[in-house]
Design a protein around this nucleic acid. Structure first.
Length: 284
DNA sequence: GCCCAGGATCACC
DNA sequence: GGTGATCCTGGG
């Protein structure tokens, strides 16, 4: 990876393929929007950022050296060579998934935002999830000014903890309102997501599953998309259907996790992202 | 009007 | 510990 700075941008090269739509429109995040020029803009870490694909890499704007090193380098997982992942695999579905989605990367998002977002995602559709999170940010998040526009950061734990169940229902959370309310209070009250990072995968998953509204699938999403646990293998209905159709495998959540780890190893979660593409493309 | 959406929970077995 | 019904809500 190489990075150069100019005109307020960071130009990142030597990272292999980089494909914004395979990064931002694959369900791992909810706050990035495609722009007319094909780039994506979003708010993360309380900052506005525009991301575009350039020849051999990515352009981030606005981005100074400090923000790149302290935030975006890890956020975009730039230190991982995605082109070299699963080299030599004979798994046809994984190969096909890699073929469908070159330039895909798994983001390292902020834990609290990811936790709340995926609680909201339960039995919900992407459009509605985005809408709810957007309203949540507008109402409880800090304003972020950029180029004459006002955006909103994802709310901090105390800001959400102070809201009531009725407040959340008014934003359309439905039966997830008490889950978000209680989990926000728990985190605001001292439950440390930074401690969960230091736990083993199994212990971390157990700890997250004690939070209201968090079950095995949501826990795996949080572990994979924000806590760096690359072996977390979120098993949604698509993946379960895929495992059955492709490998003739079915099992409970623990068995699925073990199966994925045996087959894809410590990067099973990244494999899951490619497999999800495969499953979706093939409608199975 | 009915069904579904990248699940979690509770009641029951 | 395993299974099935139920759950808010907006869109197709």
């Amino acid at each position: 990876m190489r990075v150069e700075y100019g005109n307020g941008s960071a130009i990142v090269t030597d990272i292999g393929a980089f494909e914004p739509r395979h990064i931002f429109d694959n369900g791992q995040c909810f706050r990035w929007r495609a722009q007319e020029d094909g780039s994506y803009s979003g708010i993360a870490h309380g900052r506005y950022l525009n991301v575009s694909k350039i020849d051999g890499g990515a352009k981030l704007y606005p981005c100074n050296p400090d923000d790149f090193e302290n935030i975006w380098r890890a956020y975009f997982d730039f230190d991982r060579d995605y082109g070299a992942l699963f080299a030599g695999t004979r798994d046809g579905a994984l190969l096909a998934g890699q073929h469908y989605a070159p330039g895909l990367r798994v983001l390292n998002q902020q834990p609290f935002e990811t936790l709340i977002s995926f609680i909201i995602s339960a039995n919900n559709n992407i459009t509605r999830i985005r809408g709810i999170i957007g309203r949540l940010c507008e109402k409880y998040g800090a304003p972020v000014e950029f180029a004459g526009n006002t955006y909103f950061a994802f709310p901090a734990p105390p800001a959400l903890a102070a809201a009531s169940e009725a407040d959340f229902k008014a934003l359309g959370l439905g039966y997830r309102a008490p889950y978000v309310q209680k989990t926000a209070q728990t985190v605001s009250g001292g439950f440390s997501l930074n401690e969960v990072v230091r736990m083993s995968y199994a212990d971390a998953k157990k700890a997250l599953c004690r939070l209201p509204g968090v079950g095995p699938k949501v826990a795996d999403c949080v572990l994979l998309f924000s806590l760096g646990k690359t072996r977390a293998f979120p098993a949604d209905v698509w993946i379960k259907r895929f495992l059955l159709n492709e490998y003739g495998f079915s099992g409970n959540d623990r068995q699925i996790s073990d199966f994925a780890y045996q087959r894809f190893g410590n990067l099973a979660g990244i494999a899951q992202q490619y497999l999800f593409y495969y499953a979706r493309e093939n409608k199975n």
